[in-house]
Structure formats: C-alpha cells, structure tokens
Amino acid sequence: MSAIAVADRRAQAASTGMWLFLASIVMFYGSLFSGFVLLRAGSETWEMPWKTGLSAEWPMAVDHWFRTMWIGFAVMQSRRLSGAGVPVAGLPRYSWLVVLAGVFFFARCVYVAGWLAAQGLVPSASVPLACWYVLNGAVAVLVLGGSIAAVWVALERVPPTQRARRGAMLQRYWMLMLALWLITVTGLYLV
C-alpha cells in the first residue's frame, strides 16, 4: 500500500474514532442532564440559592459570560490551529492558547464551587445543589481534558498536515464543550 493510502486510512480512522468518542461523551453528559431534568420535573420545589438573593453577592451573569468566553476562545484558537484547512508553520502557539483557556475555565469552576461551598452550599445540602455540582463538575473535567489534549497536540512532533488534522479534531471537541456548557447554563440558571 502506498504511503498516501496509509495516511488516508489513519486519518479516516482518527476521524471516526473522534466522532465515536464525542458520541459517547454526548451520551454520558446527556444521561447526567436527563437525570437532572427528571429530578427537577419530579420535585415540587427547586430552590437554587441564587434565586433567593445570593446573586447580589455573586455577579452570576458576568461569571457565566467569562466562562463562556474562555471556551469560545478555545474553539477559535483550535480553529486557527487546524489552519482552517491550510497548514501553516508555527501553529503550536495556538495550542498553548487553547490550553490556557481551558485551564482558566477549570480554575474558575473550582473557584466558584469553593465559594459556594464556603457559604455552606455544599452538594449534600440539597438535590438542586447536587445537580449543580455534578453538571458543572462534569463540564469542568471534560474541559480540562480538552486542555490536556491540546498540550499533547502542541508537544507532538508531526508534519504540519497531520497537526492541522489534529487541530481540526481538537476543534470539534471544543465545539462540543461549548455546546455542553451552554446547555448547562441554560438548564441550571436560565430555565
């Protein structure tokens, strides 16, 4: 088999694998989220603390805007990393920007969780809070995973075309992260 055919097959396998991986993440997060929906639909009261005055102390809207921005930033940088189809030299620095965005997001999640816990709003305090921690935690961990993947892409010595392909896959992952995060925000805070 020619070298080009081998490379094609590898690309096809990698792309298939990535789609399958994303599908299983969708199922995982979807199960957590439908658990949340079922619990919420089945309970008469659903008291999220920020509906009872906490939001004054915690600039919630700003915080969400910040966190959404970090993921959006990661999506944009991973798009540049993929070279939008055109491989360019010197791409690894976009990778590091993706890593940074993910780490900031994660750190912010940890900070917010710690702040809530310090107010006595721990997961065991109520089922809504348990859902808040689980859904936020799942997104935070998945986002951190995206950062780790970006580190890997940055450090691996591969030809530009291959790196561009990795960048494209990374971008797909981060777009899913953005979707999950927006769903989380919608489910937990807006609806």
């Binding site: 995982f28 997060y29 658990g35």
Partner: peptide
Amino acid sequence: LLAFPALQAAAVF
C-alpha cells in the same frame, strides 16, 4: 459506546 455512559452517569450520581 452509546449505552455504557448512562451507567457511568448513574455511577457518578
């Protein structure tokens, strides 16, 4: 691939 994540989610809960 598609069904096991549901149990994983349940296990997390």
